[in-house]
Design a protein around this nucleic acid. Sequence first.
DNA 1: ACATCGGGAGAACGATCGTTCTCCCGACCG
DNA 2: CGGTCGGGAGAACGATCGTTCTCCCGATGT
Lengths: 186, 186
Amino acid sequence: MSDAETAELKVLDTAQRLFDARGVQAVGMDAIRSASGVSLKRLYQLFPSKDLLVEAVLRRRDEAVRSSLAAHGERTADGPYERALAVFDWLAAWFAEPEFRGCAFINGFGELGGVSPAVAAISRDHKEALRAYFAEQTDALGAPLVLADQLSLLANGAMVVAGITGSAEPAAQAKAAARVLLDTTR
Amino acid sequence: MSDAETAELKVLDTAQRLFDARGVQAVGMDAIRSASGVSLKRLYQLFPSKDLLVEAVLRRRDEAVRSSLAAHGERTADGPYERALAVFDWLAAWFAEPEFRGCAFINGFGELGGVSPAVAAISRDHKEALRAYFAEQTDALGAPLVLADQLSLLANGAMVVAGITGSAEPAAQAKAAARVLLDTTR
DNA sequence: ACATCGGGAGAACGATCGTTCTCCCGACCG
DNA sequence: CGGTCGGGAGAACGATCGTTCTCCCGATGT
């Protein structure tokens, strides 16, 4: 049934948008229902509880971010050096979206990480994946592993500062810093 | 009345500890009451609403962090170069605390920044203060302002990654990266 | 045509939460 | 000693929320 699939997509899209804008706990199931047009009954047979919906939203976003990042790297950059730097261009485009209010995993961990082991684990895995992506590039450069950690710190710091200040500048600042680190460690 | 003052301190300490551990919305006023031993009546005459209590907790923490950071810089470091790097030692000590679960302003912004302009503003001011502290040091070194922004990205990235992964390592990694940036821009 | 079934709209339920109110005690003041 | 007042404990209230239930309609199969 493509009917069930499109309903599921509408719910996930709507929930993601509302969670991003207001946080998870400030968004009721009823708000998701009216914004998505999917009835409560259907909503609960797709996602038996709000917790499960939250986890599904985060997991889907995790996949989307990983593939978007990888695609951007392959599309715009040749070689590990350029691919590592291209992450920050990808961040810049993300920060420039008008609804941008920070990273859903950082925000979700802050809100729910202390009470939901599932959310904490998903956030941890997601951040580990970003570090692993940087590690792929630094490995290919023969650089030490700590460089990947440091690039990940710059990227996450840029997400936080861009989210809180509402500016996209941190992406470019982080990119310049990343270039210095990449050049120094060679 | 030192009675009212100690009650206020007990409430602020307790609320801060519970908010840090579980997030703001997961902590009810009743939990603050039983953990602090301050009656609801008194609690509400000290802080007329939970929103105001949340803001008071964040504002007090803002002051505490600013003076703790400045004190650590004066105590352990001579000159702007060392003081900029000392921030990351200060982070390392913070991350090593067993209850550490990330920065209250980053977490608070993620949870409430979308619905509470007050929380968003306090978080923004706090992060701006960190940037300004770095800017003091980089100015004294005659370095360009963007270096302060970059050091602030490293510090905030370290807070996020340390909080999510539960490791204190990001502080040392960020410090090493900061040293490279400081040395390069000279 | 009629029975059946899935699903929509939204009322209802139970729990929780922020906030206020009631009741009571103990201290202070004439 | 009697009255008053501040404050503690916790019940009560109203709102909200996650979740379920009721009622009804429309489609489908025979």
